[in-house]
Amino acid sequence: MTKISVCLASHNGEKYIKAQIDSILPQLNEEDELIISDDGSTDTTISIIHSYRDKRIKLTTCDVRDNAIKNFENALTRCSGEVIFLADQDDLWAPNKIETMLKALKTYDIVLSDCCVVNENLELLCPSLFGINKTRTGFWKNLWKNGYVGCCMAFHRKILNKALPFPAHIPMHDQWIGLVGELFYKPVAIKDPLTMYRRHEKSTTKTGDKSHFSLISKIRFRINLIKNLIRLYV
């Protein structure tokens, strides 16, 4: 049976993290794992995680503060599964998320699923993030306007082995993983909305908002991405 690793980055997530963990654990088998990397929570996040006393949950600490890329990288370097899922602390997974994405991963190497966008009370804001972002596969499309949202991604370990360590000065970890998948492996986007993507005032990213980076910064980011992808060929 394929071992699954779910990698979740946490930071002061006491308000939502229990509901998210409760949506993930029932989908995991005994040999699977939920790796949670915390980067210095000062609320009750850690005590909530410890309260589970579930051997599948493995808590680790990230030394770099307020850096989602480093926090996810810390979790990813510690996972041992053959299939890796990324998870945010404030979302909710559909009960069939792992089952559905594993089916796609029998044919493809990296899978991106759709999700519905909800507010902090789980009230529907938009039925499809794909519709907002005009999401589709394709290297050049996702180089300029990224559609790879981490909480909607799952991939085989061979992609992780190629993507780690994360290069410096990348826009986000999920775009980097997605582009590695696009360039070297077989990607697919499936229309099933398998996550309730919760948006609230403390969300790391704001759905539908334009990037705060200048055009020059965007170009520099993309040039850096291309340079680091070229290095993977060497």
Score class of each variant (00 low, 15 high):
residue 3 K to R: 15
residue 5 S to G: 02
residue 17 I to M: 02
residue 19 A to P: 00
residue 22 D to Y: 03
residue 33 E to H: 09
residue 35 I to H: 08
residue 42 T to E: 13
residue 44 T to S: 15
residue 45 T to E: 08
residue 49 I to Q: 00
residue 56 R to L: 05
residue 59 L to A: 07
residue 60 T to W: 01
residue 61 T to M: 13
residue 64 V to Q: 13
residue 65 R to A: 11
residue 67 N to L: 05
residue 71 N to P: 04
residue 76 L to F: 09
residue 77 T to S: 09
residue 79 C to Q: 12
residue 85 F to E: 13
residue 87 A to V: 02
residue 90 D to L: 12
residue 92 L to W: 12
residue 94 A to I: 00
residue 96 N to Y: 05
residue 100 T to D: 00
residue 106 K to E: 15
residue 111 V to N: 12
residue 113 S to T: 15
residue 120 E to R: 00
residue 123 E to Y: 03
residue 123 E to D: 11
residue 129 L to E: 15
residue 137 T to R: 14
residue 141 K to M: 11
residue 142 N to P: 06
residue 143 L to F: 12
residue 144 W to Q: 14
residue 146 N to E: 01
residue 148 Y to L: 01
residue 153 M to W: 01
residue 160 L to H: 04
residue 163 A to K: 01
residue 167 P to E: 08
residue 168 A to G: 07
residue 169 H to G: 08
residue 171 P to D: 07
residue 171 P to Y: 10
residue 171 P to A: 04
residue 182 E to Y: 11
residue 186 K to V: 02
residue 193 P to N: 06
residue 194 L to K: 03
residue 196 M to D: 14
residue 198 R to S: 07
residue 206 K to N: 13
residue 213 F to P: 00
residue 216 I to W: 12
residue 225 L to V: 05
residue 227 K to I: 08
residue 231 R to I: 12
